[in-house]
Each structure stands twice: as C-alpha cells, then as structure tokens.
Write a protein that binds this DNA or RNA. Structure first.
Lengths: 293, 293
DNA sequence: GGTGGTTACGACCAACGTAAAGATC
DNA sequence: GATCTTTACGTTGGTCGTAACCACC
C-alpha cells in the first residue's frame, strides 16, 4: 500500500474517472490503471467499479482510511520541515468564519504593531480545512469553533500532535425568524428543537452534526443546507423561514429579520480554540498570548 | 516517505541499532543504512544520531507520526481483509485487565453455548494494545476501560473508524491502605488527592494520566510504577503504603489490607466500552448484544 | 582489532510511458 | 465509432545484497 497508490486511488474516486485522475496527477491513464490494479492485487479485492467509475464497498472503506493517512503523511513532512526552517516574519491564520471576531482582529493588529515587517494572511476555511492547513504547513495557526460542554475540549480531527487552547467562550444561541412563536422567549431548550426545521450551514453556523452529537439525538435533520460562509446570508435564509440555525450569541445578534434566543439546556457553550503546531513561530506565540491575555 | 522506510526507521529507533533492526526486519545492515539515508535525504534533516544510535529532535518528532501512520496502514489492510473474509467461528477478545469481570465471562459463556464449534480466545492487554489488536485484525473485539464524565465517551486512540459501545459503568474508587487516615471516609474528592503518593499501574488500575486529564490537574505524579496486570499484586503494593490507586469500585473491594473509598467529586465514572470493527463477525455481534442486553 | 555503520557496485525488480488491443456506451 | 480502460513491452530508475571500506570504542 504505497502512498502513491493510495493518492492515485483517492484521485480516481474523487474525479470519477481514470483519465481525469491521471491528468490531475500528471500521470498517463496507463499508469493510473496500473496503480489501481496493483492496489487491488495487493488487497485481494476489487476497489473500483468501472464504467461508471466508482468505489466498491471495499473501496469506500479504503477511502476512509486513505484520506487521513495521506493527510498525516503530509502533516509529518510539514512537521519536520518546520523544525529546520527559520521562518520569515509571516503569520498565516486559517480561521473558521465565526471565529473572525473583533477580539481576533484586534489581537492581530496588536501583533502586527509589535512585529515590524510582518506579513499577515487570513484565510477563511471550513473547520476541518483550517486544521488541515495547519497540519500541512499551509497556515501557521488555525482558529476553529464548535459546541462543547463547558470546559470540555472540542473534538478535533486527530492527524498528529497539535497544541490547542481555548480562547473564547460564548453562550450558544438559536437564530430564528423575528416572527417565530419562540422568538420572544428568554431562553430555549435545545432538545425541544430537535424536530424543528433546520438550516445546515456547516461553514457559517454550528454544523447540525455537532448539535446531534452534543445532545445525543437523532434529530436536527437539515431542512435545507447552506454552503456559504456569510452570516448575513444565513440570517436572510433564517428570516424567510427556511429553518433555524445555532450560533454563538454575539454572532447571532443584530441580523435583520431574525431573533437570537439563548440555549438554556443542556449546558453547552460555543467555544473557539486556537490550534497551532507544537513548533510555533514567534508570531504565533505572540498571537496566542494576545488572544489569551 | 515510503512506509517501508518509516517501518525501518521505527525499528532502528526501537532497537537502538541498525544491525539489530536489520535482523528484526529481515534486511541486511546495508539496506537499513540505505533506508535511513533515503529518509534523511527526503526530509532534508538528520533523523538518527549514530554511535550511539538514537533519534535526533526531528527523529523523535517523526517517530510520533510514524507509529500511528503504520498502525493505520495495518488497520486499513485488516479492515479491507475483513470484508472479504468469511470468518470461521472464532471469537478473539482482547481486554484490559479490569474489564475481565463476571459480566464479561458470563456473556462469553452464553455466546459459546449459543454458537456450537466456537473457538474462544481471550487475551489480556493494555488498553492501547487491545485497540491495536482489533484494528490490525489480531482480535475481533476489545474491551477497554477508563474514566470519563458520565455519558461522555472514552478517549480512544483514533486510528480508524470503529464502533464503540458502553457496556458497564461503575463508581470510581480510590484504593488505600486499610490503616490510611482517609480509609474510613464514606467518600473522597479526587482533587484533594492530587498531591498524594500514587502508584501508577496503567495496565491494572486507571492510569494516572487519565486522572490528570479528567481533573485537569498537574498532580497525580507517580510515586512508583507497577507494570503488572494483576490486581492482587497492586493491592499488596497499596496495602504496604507504596501509594494510592484509582479503580472501579467493584474491582477495588475485597483486597486484603486495603480499603476502597468512593470518589464523590468531580463527577466521574469508570466506564467499560466494547470496541469492534464496523464489519463485526456474527460472534462479535452476539457478544455485544449479550453484554448490552 | 572488533563491532557496527557507510559506500560501491552489480543484479534484479518495479514503475512509468508508448502503443496497441479490448470493452462499453 | 468514440471514449475510456486494459494489456504488452521496452526503458529507466530504484532497491536490495555482497563486499570492501571506514569510524569509533
């Protein structure tokens, strides 16, 4: 199970075609075909269904292993590279949309002021992608958010040793249309809303999957999904009755046509954590201490 | 970063010698030397200090990546192999010592009775090794234990998708010498014991590291360590004043010369979980339903 | 001088590309 | 018949072992 073969395999599944994968990887069709054949011979099972191209049952299972495996391989390389590299004064921040709060931008401003010649880069990503960026060295530090019980750590993808530190906690709130019957309540129980209509906006609000696992419920099924990263866009969707969304209270307030109601039970908070490699640059250390202190 | 190279690298670090690693892997010294040289050239850093042989800083970092990487590689192969293999009537159980309770042995007896011709194998391991055994296919199911907040899952090593299910919860107790000043208390606060003398018996009792992370304290430093897997042996150590140990209440009672006192705060339980692949054999399904129902 | 890691070199095998064949819509 | 995958085959490059070399106790 050579990583090259796995990488090719994943590319084939993603592209849905041998030739497209070949083009993407800079191989010939033939090489890709040989890679897949080698993998299938090695594992003794057909992994890819041809015509149309798609994963078999075993192939689907393999993809679930291959992706984190390749990620960790990249992470290992980046981790070693960081050790010998004397970094320029760069600070690349990968953050999930909600985490880009005044507290963060002001901390960034203070860091920039304190370190002359600093090149600052902020990229907005989904949570997993932000962590990925740190692991592979594309970013120096990530800010991710999610719901958790108070003082519990966020469940993060485990692709290697990383340092995490909680930097902000906010009450969890539900964003509802201003004219919703529950909009004037002072607080709500999350369990009562399991069967409501929800907008799943994983990159903007709290992903419904996180609510489901936090409440240990089978509810919170998406009534519609929103792939954007814009809170106002989500607010518009909620205002026009497409469904509810869970957000940290500060981010949920002040959106026209909506109301934000705090969650009373279960005891959950919206937490933001900084994630950085265990060999942080000086700029990362400065940012972390700014955020923390 | 070919897995072969990583495997060789880990073997070199573990053996502390190129030639010993070569012998262990079935290579020549020369091949091992070339593997290390190739890895070092690839990553652009010296990974191994020679004479004496040991990891450099970068090497230590790489080992931390390589071990889980190789484990997951094995896990992936085993996972695929399970899909096509029509398993014989075998049930290999890898369990941590404390989990071998009457509830388990009786469930095993019922499964054996229900499935004629079943070959039963029980291996006692440390927790991580038990999970490893399931991942690599050496065992069909594992029973692991640990402390967690009520209804929180145990933190398990993440080397691939697995099904886990809580099968037992017991109050957490402290094992102390019968003549200890605190031995007659009805209950104790764990936080008050952070600075006590502790016996770290990771394979027999709750590892101190788990207590530390559960209480989020820096205490619980080992006064001595016990590598065995025998609860009576641990009881003897505690009875003679070598230190305290944390155990599930049922396992801690009835050991001569000791007393078991329940933990009152923080709210923690000792939980046992079954861990099995997502393609369980019939025997595993039977065992799980026996344990659960 | 012995133990143990490195380097040189040759044999072998594996991986890629080209090109022709085969399969499927 | 067009598109896409497989197979055949030749070239290239990499990997291993043997053996000579070198370094450190």
């Amino acid at each position: 199970m050579d990583p090259h073969l796995l990488r090719t395999f994943v590319a084939v599944i993603e592209h849905g075609s041998f030739s497209a994968a070949a083009q993407g990887l800079g191989y010939t069709q033939s090489a890709v075909s040989q890679h897949i054949a080698a993998l299938e011979a090695d594992l003794g099972t057909r992994l890819v269904e041809r015509r149309p191209v798609g994963p078999t049952a075993a192939g689907e299972r393999l993809v679930e292993h291959a992706r984190p495996l390749l990620l960790r391989l990249d992470a290992a390389r980046a981790d070693i590279a960081r050790l010998r590299q004397v970094r320029p004064a760069r600070l690349a921040v990968a953050c999930a949309p909600i985490t880009l709060t005044p507290a963060l931008t002001m901390a960034l401003a203070r860091v920039r002021e304190a370190t002359p010649g600093l090149t600052l880069a902020v990229e907005v990503h989904g949570r997993d992608e932000a962590v990925r960026a740190v692991l592979t060295g594309a970013a120096d530090v990530a800010l991710v958010d999610g719901v958790a019980a108070p003082s519990d750590p966020l469940p993060l993808p485990d692709a290697g040793p990383m340092s995490t530190l909680a930097v902000a906690e906010a009450p969890l709130a539900i964003l509802l249309p201003a004219d919703h019957p529950l909009a004037r309540r002072p607080s709500l129980r999350l369990g009562d809303l399991a069967d409501a209509h929800w907008v799943d906006a994983p990159d903007t609000a709290v992903p419904l999957g996180q609510l489901r696992s936090a409440v240990r419920s089978d509810g919170f099924t998406p009534h519609m999904t929103y792939d954007g990263t814009d809170v106002r866009g989500l607010g518009a969707l909620v205002a026009s009755g497409h469904g509810l969304a869970a957000l940290p209270l500060p981010a949920a307030t002040g959106l026209t046509g909506t109301a934000a109601v705090r969650i009373r039970a279960p005891r959950l908070v919206h937490r933001t954590e900084v994630v950085h490699p265990r060999t942080p640059t000086a700029a990362v250390r400065a940012l972390v201490s700014e955020l923390n202190g």
